[in-house]
């Protein structure tokens, strides 16, 4: 167990059950996990193993059916939807597989968008946006529209959007899924650099190659965590 004070995220006995057509689907069962500050965590696993559900819960997009979740020493499992939205906005940065940039906003406006709702002053906002765009080397494209950019560039803008608010943690769901291998590697390099600079990251991927960028990786299989050799943890 790492130093208690350094733990950013702590999941204890997380279960997630989906009810579909009177049938229970157990997406996660009894997951225990923690992410420390400054870590680059990779969650691996085949499709359908519950990776995305896991990330949804970590990113407060979804609530676990049962279990405890503390983010930065604060219990977040019991919060209401709008409280979760607020925390998402301030403390979590999201990077999606399909970039999800807003088509009729420019690069600058896309990155600025989440900051708008944090009460940051516009001058401060501008600084933050520029800083984030410079970090992903997209500063020169800030006036462009997303449709004018390549996939790799769009994903870099998405990374900048996630970074701009200086979140506690960056969550990425298959960030390379829609990219060719060259661009994919570039994005992973970028994430790695961010980690080196001190950012905490958690990515979900089914591609083992990219797991090597991470400082630590866990494997999910049928909703349960297994260690690197596919043996149940704790068994």
């Amino acid at each position: 167990m790492s130093n208690e004070n350094n733990t950013l995220i702590k999941l204890t006995n997380i279960n997630k059950v989906f009810l579909t057509d009177d049938m229970e689907t157990r997406a996660l069962s009894g997951v225990d996990m923690h992410i420390d500050n400054g870590e680059f965590m990779a969650i691996n696993g085949p499709s359908g193993c519950g990776k995305s559900t896991m990330l949804s819960i970590i990113g407060l997009l979804d609530t676990p059916t049962s279990g405890e979740y503390t983010l930065n020493g604060r219990d977040v499992a019991s919060l209401s939807a709008s409280e979760r939205a607020r925390i998402r906005n301030k403390e979590v940065g999201f990077i999606f597989q399909s970039f999800n940039l807003i088509g009729d906003l420019s690069v600058y406006e896309n990155v600025e968008l989440p900051l708008t709702y944090r009460g940051t002053k516009s001058s401060a906002r501008k600084e933050l946006v520029m800083e984030a765009l410079e970090k992903v080397d997209m500063g020169h494209r800030m006036k462009h529209m997303p449709s004018q950019l390549s996939g790799g560039q769009q994903q870099r803008v998405a990374v900048a959007r996630a970074l701009a608010g200086k979140p506690q943690i960056l969550l990425a769901d298959e960030p390379t899924g829609n990219l060719d291998s060259k661009n994919g590697e570039a994005v992973m390099d970028l994430l790695k650099n961010l980690n080196d600079e001190g950012a905490t990251l958690c990515i979900v991927t089914h591609d083992e190659r990219y797991s090597t960028y991470a400082t630590r990786s866990v494997h999910l299989f049928d909703g349960q965590l297994v260690d690197g050799d596919g043996v149940m943890a704790g068994v």
Binding site: R74, D75, L79, S80, S82, E83, R86, I87
Partner: peptide, 11 residues
């Protein structure tokens, strides 16, 4: 009210 109760968590 939501704002306040969020704040209260770390108050």
């Amino acid at each position: 009210d939501e704002v306040f109760s969020v704040l209260s968590v770390d108050t």
